[in-house]
Computed example of a mutant assay.
Amino acid sequence: MTAPVATVLLVFGRGVTTIGEQFVLTPASAARVDAAIDYVHTHRDAFAAARAPLVVFTGGWAEASRGAPQPPEGSREGDLMLARAQAAGLAAHAELKLERRSRSTLENLLHTVEDGLLAGHAFGPGHPLGLVSHAWHLPRIRFLARKVLRLRGAGLLDVPATGGEPASNRERVVHVASRLWFLGVTDPARLRRRERAMVASLPRRAPG
């Protein structure tokens, strides 16, 4: 039996940095864009009989939680990820959308839903939603996707990125904290309040 292919990919950012006065993707963010590009190209034959795949790049300015000033217009995570994908020619093979307001993984998912970026798409074991990030980040994304999107198990498909950053020890801490702070909570407003409280309780650095 052929494994299902994700026709919708949700790509999670991993921050921006500066080179001189120019804002650029961190190597980990760039690796996630490249993983999405590779996935679309690898499965191009599977998309031929259906409509073009959808790739949603999601990421705003996570560093805002640390008090850093926001980048200029067009230089948030989502903007830069979309630009990298367009430069690689992905727009010729997929529909590209972007979410650029979020400051965390939870907000990535909440804003994607609130902005209607997944409208018209239904997900399940035969039509999973592809999650593009590093392997060490994917368990927390799956946990939050279950709360925000009501998807779990085979309704989600991991598309792991490689390179750009080693496995994060902090991610394990944030994942465990998320499971505790978000226990029994699915309402978006309550999730946001719980996240603010969680971030305030952790050592200084916002979760990505």
Rank of each mutant, 00 (worst) to 15 (best):
R146T: 04
R146S: 12
R146K: 14
R146L: 11
R146E: 15
K147Y: 02
K147G: 01
K147H: 11
K147I: 03
K147W: 13
V148D: 14
V148Q: 14
V148F: 11
V148R: 13
L149F: 01
L149C: 07
L149Q: 01
R150G: 06
L151M: 10
L151A: 04
R152A: 13
G153Y: 08
G153S: 05
G153R: 14
A154D: 10
G155D: 03
G155W: 07
L156A: 08
L156W: 01
L156K: 02
L156F: 05
L156V: 00
L157K: 09
D158M: 03
D158W: 01
D158I: 06
D158K: 07
D158A: 06
D158E: 07
V159W: 10
V159Q: 11
P160A: 03
P160N: 03
P160D: 08
P160H: 04
A161T: 01
A161D: 00
A161K: 03
A161Q: 07
T162H: 15
T162C: 02
T162S: 13
T162Q: 14
T162D: 10
T162K: 14
T162V: 12
G163M: 09
G163R: 11
G163S: 09
G163T: 11
G164E: 06
G164M: 05
G164Q: 03
G164A: 08
E165M: 13
E165Q: 14
E165Y: 12
E165V: 10
E165K: 13
P166R: 05
P166G: 08
P166K: 07
P166Y: 05
P166C: 04
P166E: 08
P166I: 06
P166L: 07
A167N: 11
A167E: 14
A167T: 04
A167R: 10
S168F: 06
N169S: 15
N169L: 15
N169R: 15
N169P: 15
N169K: 14
R170T: 12
E171K: 05
E171T: 01
E171W: 01
R172N: 01
R172G: 00
V173I: 13
V174T: 04
V174L: 06
V174I: 07
V174C: 04
H175A: 02
H175N: 12
H175Q: 07
H175P: 13
H175V: 07
H175D: 12
V176C: 11
V176H: 02
V176W: 00
V176S: 02
V176Y: 00
A177N: 12
A177S: 14
A177Y: 04
A177G: 14
A177P: 13
S178I: 09
S178P: 01
S178T: 01
S178N: 10
R179H: 05
R179L: 13
R179S: 09
R179F: 11
R179M: 15
L180C: 04
L180I: 14
L180S: 00
W181K: 09
F182I: 02
F182C: 00
F182A: 05
L183Q: 15
L183S: 15
L183C: 14
L183A: 15
L183F: 15
L183H: 15
G184P: 12
G184I: 11
G184L: 03
G184H: 10
G184E: 10
